[in-house]
Design a protein around this nucleic acid. Structure first.
Length: 743
DNA sequence: TTTTGTCCTG
DNA sequence: CAGGACAAAA
């Protein structure tokens, strides 16, 4: 027991506060920011990858891992990108890359400046293509930036064939990633002046039309086509090679980036915008320079601020490399290179990338919100079905894979791990009584994520709406998402309800009267409080059958109760199967039992606890939790004692002899309310004696003025701890509550 | 070093 | 009631 004077206490608190804010928070903001930025970036490129990415990032963040966050994150990103590489046009980067290549075929130098906007340049591409399809075929490029070889009709045919193909591809891409901001940019205005006979839409139709070529023509050029195919294969190989190079370079770049990140943690928060831009352009650079195949060593000397410059330079090089061998590159192409050097383009690059990200993110958000807002009622009536089949969440959204992954990604932004989309539960019917408990429930969950009280439009049908707005991940709101769809996935009343009755009545059989009893409400609260840090993993394995036998109500909470207790050794003890009789966690009934035991023993030893909670599989965490319970009980007990002792003194009591504790005195009622709220347990007489002794101790100590001594309670504690009496044997029974309360 | 207990906060 | 800091005991 610590002896502190007030000064010491004060300094202790101050110190503690400092520690509290210190490491974790700063690290949290910085690393979380970058994790998020990175994830956003990757998310736009690959929803699935990003989803896991963010998840990972947030978990790391929670662990307080500092610099390793980004490192690991980036490494992961690598592997995801590897996986997705074969799909050009599916990512922002590749679009950007394509556009940059494409601009080699641009007709005007000014094109370059705007060439980085994928939305804008897509239109431009089209225009270029349609232009050339009428006038100058050689100017039209293949999707991969290779110009068509062009002489005579052969080339014309091949060119048109390619164009047609490209039109299809573009069509697909446009369908996949239709951007809301298709507005033409300023530079496009210049191009409007150029000779262009048809509108974009016209040229698009034209492309489609040209897919169908006269039969005769096809036959006559078949050989040439096969030759072209061969060529394309070669092209594909080259591209593959390039992609591999790019991946390699991207990796190096990433390494470089987190080196920088490690060395300048403190600066990052301030200029996050710049760094974010650098990151993106860095990735772009890595890809863009793939075909150049240059040495990478120089990268090591870059700092984030130079990435933009490097990106510009490399894009330029790439243009050169691509243009030279295949085209009789007119002076026009070289003429545009000086323009690439101008500083404003770096800003263009960054801004365009930012725009891309914003667009992608807002698209995803819109889509997700739209999807979930229009969600129909479709859940099976079985109450626990979603819990039994965690995979159901994939089935639910199986038709909208994109939306699903996007949703998960956003969920991960919002919280540590929210693996289940809420709509899995959105329309789950539940006992009305349990629903009624929801209001009470939400108030008593200090540990479960729950903060946002803002009104969100109920996404589900009104029928199932009464239990909806239970939980919302706090970050989903802070991250700026209109996250009506990202609430806590657990149907908390459903989880809590089965434990409410110590008698273990089935959930469905509760009457309204039962529910209204203070005891059941209290137990609900306790249940919720106990259910800390559950993960979906535990839920998934939970054997919550609706037909669960009443007597096993406690067993239900088995894997729900905090299994977070650190050690791997502890975790390994937690079996996903509840076949054994031992519980891995403490249930609300255990708490109730502990409270009743407090009437007999105020200072139980850990061995005693093990004896009396024999149905619990003890580990360090369980033990300390039980001890903590009793510590809390004592705290309340002593506070009450002191309070009433002082009150008696104020009331003019002269001697401790005047003080007595009866079953109808105020102090007793307070204690009984605390430890035996339902009043369904007969408090032993011995407890009254002990309480009276305690009260008198306090009274005497205060009268004697000992309370000026900061450790004056210590003596009282010593006395009280000797007054423990034997706990009845019945408490050793796991079912003691039923037996006790039935009497 | 671990365990146990108190104090404080949320 | 839980978590954390802290201290004393084991």
């Amino acid at each position: 027991m610590p002896d502190h004077d007030n000064t010491a206490l004060l300094s202790r608190q101050t110190k503690r506060r400092r520690v509290d804010i210190g490491v974790k928070r700063t690290v949290g903001t910085a690393s979380a920011f970058f994790a998020k930025a990175r994830a956003t970036f990757l998310g736009a490129m690959n929803p699935q990858g990003a989803e896991q990415d963010v998840e990972y990032a947030v978990v790391q963040h929670a662990d307080g891992e500092k610099s390793n966050v980004l490192r690991k994150l980036l490494k992961r990103a690598n592997s995801y990108e590897d996986a997705m590489m074969p799909f050009p046009g599916a990512t922002i980067i590749s679009q950007l890359l394509k556009n940059n290549m494409n601009k080699n075929g641009g007709t005007e130098p000014s094109f370059q400046a705007s060439g980085l906007s994928s939305t804008g340049s897509e239109v431009q591409q089209e225009d270029v293509c349609s232009n050339s399809s009428r006038d100058s075929p050689p100017e039209c490029l293949s999707p991969f930036g290779r110009p068509a070889l062009g002489h005579f009709d052969v080339d014309r045919f091949c060119d048109e064939h390619l164009r047609a193909k490209r039109a299809r591809v573009e069509n697909i891409i446009r369908g996949m990633s239709h951007s809301p901001s298709v507005a033409l940019r300023g530079q496009d205005g210049e191009r409007e002046g150029a000779p262009r006979p048809s509108s974009p839409r016209d040229s698009y139709r034209e492309n489609k039309r040209k897919q169908r070529l006269p039969q005769q023509q096809q036959q006559s050029f078949q050989q040439l086509v096969s030759a072209r195919k061969e060529q394309k294969r070669e092209e594909r190989r080259q591209l593959k090679q390039q992609l591999e190079d790019m991946q390699k370079q991207l990796r190096q770049l990433q390494e470089k980036f987190y080196q920088i990140y490690d060395s300048s943690d403190s600066d990052i928060e301030g200029d996050g915008d710049l760094s974010e831009g650098s990151l993106r352009s860095g990735s772009l650079e890595a890809r863009a320079r793939g075909s150049v195949g240059r040495s990478d060593t120089e990268l090591c000397e870059l700092d984030p601020g130079h990435f933009l410059d490097r990106a510009r330079a490399l894009l330029r090089e790439q243009e050169l490399a691509e243009n030279k061998p295949e085209r009789e590159g007119g002076p026009r192409e070289r003429a545009e290179h000086p323009a690439a050097l101008q500083p404003p383009e770096g800003k263009h690059l960054a801004e365009t990338l930012k725009q891309e990200l914003n667009t992608a993110v807002s698209q995803v958000v819109d889509t997700v919100v739209k999807v979930f807002a229009a969600k129909p009622a479709r859940q099976p009536p079985q109450v626990f079905a979603p819990l039994q089949m965690p995979q159901a969440r994939f089935a639910v959204n199986g038709d909208h894979h994109d939306f699903h992954t996007a949703n998960q990604r956003l969920q991960c932004f919002g919280d540590v791990i929210l693996p289940t989309t809420l709509d899995t539960f959105g329309s789950v019917p539940m006992p009305a009584a349990a629903a009624a408990a929801a209001a009470d429930q939400t108030e008593a969950l200090p540990l479960v994520v729950r903060k946002n009280s803002s009104d969100q439009p109920a996404p589900g049908p009104p029928a199932g709406g009464h239990h909806q707005p239970l939980h919302q991940s706090p970050l989903s709101a802070t991250a700026g998402f209109t996250a009506s769809t990202f609430r806590h996935p657990f149907p908390l009343p459903l989880m809590a309800y089965p434990f409410q009755s110590p008698l273990g009545a089935p959930a469905g059989s509760f009457s309204g009267k039962d529910r209204a009893s203070p005891e059941s409400l209290d137990l609900t609260r306790e249940t919720a409080g106990l259910r800390t840090k559950m993960s979906s993993h535990h839920l998934s394995h939970h054997p919550c059958s609706p037909a669960h036998p009443p007597g096993a109500a406690e067993g239900l909470s088995l894997s729900l109760i905090k299994s977070e207790c650190g050690d791997l050794q502890d975790m390994s003890e937690i079996s996903p199967y509840s076949g054994s009789a031992m519980q891995e966690g403490l249930s609300p009934n255990h708490l109730k039992k502990a409270k009743l035991m407090f009437f007999y023993t105020r200072y139980p030893s850990s061995n005693m606890l093990k004896t009396y909670f024999s149905d619990v599989k003890f580990n360090r965490c369980i033990t300390s939790q039980l001890i903590k319970w009793f510590s809390n009980f004592r705290e309340f007990y002593y506070i009450q004692m002191e309070k009433y002792a002082r009150q008696a003194i104020n009331d003019g009591a002269a001697s401790s002899e005047e003080l007595s504790i009866t079953r109808d005195c105020e102090l007793y009622r307070a204690l009984n309310m605390h430890y035996n709220k339902a009043n369904d347990f007969e408090v032993p007489e011995r407890f009254l004696e002990v309480a009276q002794i305690t009260l008198r101790e306090f009274f005497n100590a205060i009268i004697a003025g000992k309370d000026v001594d900061p450790s004056w309670k210590k003596a009282i504690y010593k006395v009280i701890c000797k007054l423990d009496s034997e706990v009845p044997e019945i408490f050793k029974s796991p079912n003691c509550l039923q037996e006790l309360l039935h009497e």
